[in-house]
Amino acid sequence: MNYRRAVVPAVVGVIVLMAVAFGPLVDGLSLASEPAPAISNEGTLTIASVEFPTNVTIGAASYGAANAYLNVPPATVRFESITRTPTLLYNIRIPELGKSVSTAHFLDADQHGPTFDATIEPSSVDESKVQQRQYAAELSLIVRDSDGRRVAARQNVTVQVVE
């Protein structure tokens, strides 16, 4: 039997029927929407202690790329209590470079233990603006939960410019 004659139209038929079945003409079948993101900034978060890094650097990019990167190691955060889905923002501000970078961490009480390593995504710096050997900067952790927004911890740090 020449199954080529049967198989190909069958596949085409399935494809067309499926497209129509999920369409407006047929009730009941529909594609699953993307799961709605959990609502952030809800619940509570209290922080017991924070260990900020000390070796924050600005270094030229490797592979001959023209830009420089600001590298901030993670801050280790110890929670006192966490409920539901608060947000933790880890921020660095370098006033002399006019730069402020933060990374938001959307926490979930069900998924996080008592400690958490907050990170800041490496961010690029215009190398031509970097004139000094070091810069004063401020690291901070900001909590957003049901009680609103507050700075949970803050520390001054020196950013070293490395070759």
């Binding site: 190909v8 067309v16 497209a19 999920f22």
Partner: peptide, 25 residues
Amino acid sequence: AVTLVADLRVALIGLWSLALLGFVV
């Protein structure tokens, strides 16, 4: 016209699948 009778995502996935079917045939 396709959106009137079919789901657009499934239709476009179908279009890609038909191109692939055409290729293997």
